[in-house]
Design a protein around this nucleic acid. Structure first.
Lengths: 140, 140
DNA sequence: TTATATGCAAACAATTTGCATCCTG
DNA sequence: CAGGATGCAAATTGTTTGCATATAA
């Protein structure tokens, strides 16, 4: 499959651990922390070590297969790198994360290329606020 | 001054340490890590402890006087909270950070309020890429 | 004069590294 | 079978906490 080609092209080997970790990130559609991935993976492969998780996440990130999110203050979360760029909307009340696509961001990239000669290779757009429900709860 | 009113309103005291730390963030116009602030502050006040720096940063953040940036993978940076919202453009080559204001982002907030009923209270917009100079160096 | 802040040291949590062993290519 | 990958334990790094002492209000 494609993933294997990408890893091999970088001189990396395909191991059951790497397959497993990637499949977990895929199934859970992202937003998992390293530790969560570790625990989920150990259900299937109890000898897996946390360092392997970290090393694998590094490799997958370098290879552009996953991307890192700073949704929390103190740890990183991971999701599959998709083709279409998207942004995250985080509710500070209940913690839910909504993903959205935003045409404005595309225009922003174009503007910056024009204005500063910057070549944008990645972006973190994380908006924080309160969802409709949490706003209502606060009002009560 | 205003800062003191804000802190007092929250039952916080004004101490030389807090003044110093805030003034350092002001002078350096942000993008400083806790450790950098610590070292700069110790030049003026050698007995200052790192924990005081962290505690002060917490308080200043809670009070809305400074804000946190995730410009790096592994640590937080701080800057004075200004009225006008702005975004950060980070060069992965040389590390320089350009601040910019973006009308598109304002529109994005409006869209999200409309579409999801979300009330946006803060945002992290960090764009990563390569500045003109670093692109040129890479080309060579 | 009393609650809040500080400094110091020790504790923590997330991540990284060293190294012997294992296993993919 | 050789070099990359793993598991384990130990080290590192950024940040937080406990506690006795100092200090702002």
């Amino acid at each position: 499959m494609d993933v294997e080609r990408i890893l091999r092209a970088r001189g990396r080997r395909i191991t059951p651990q790497r397959r497993l970790i990637l499949s977990i990130i895929q199934e859970h559609e992202g937003h998992l922390s390293a530790d969560e991935i570790y625990h989920l993976a150990r259900e299937k492969r109890p000898r897996l070590s946390l360092s392997t998780v970290y090393r694998t996440l590094d490799i997958l990130r370098e290879s552009g297969l996953i991307s890192e999110l700073h949704l929390d203050r103190d740890l990183l979360r991971y999701e599959i790198q998709r083709d279409e760029e998207h942004q995250h909307l985080v509710c500070l009340g209940c913690g839910r994360v909504i993903e959205f696509k935003c045409a404005h961001c595309t225009r922003m990239h174009q503007d910056l290329a024009l204005q500063y000669g910057f070549k944008i290779t990645g972006s973190r757009v994380e908006l924080l606020g309160y969802c409709a429900e949490c706003q209502q709860k606060q009002a009560e």
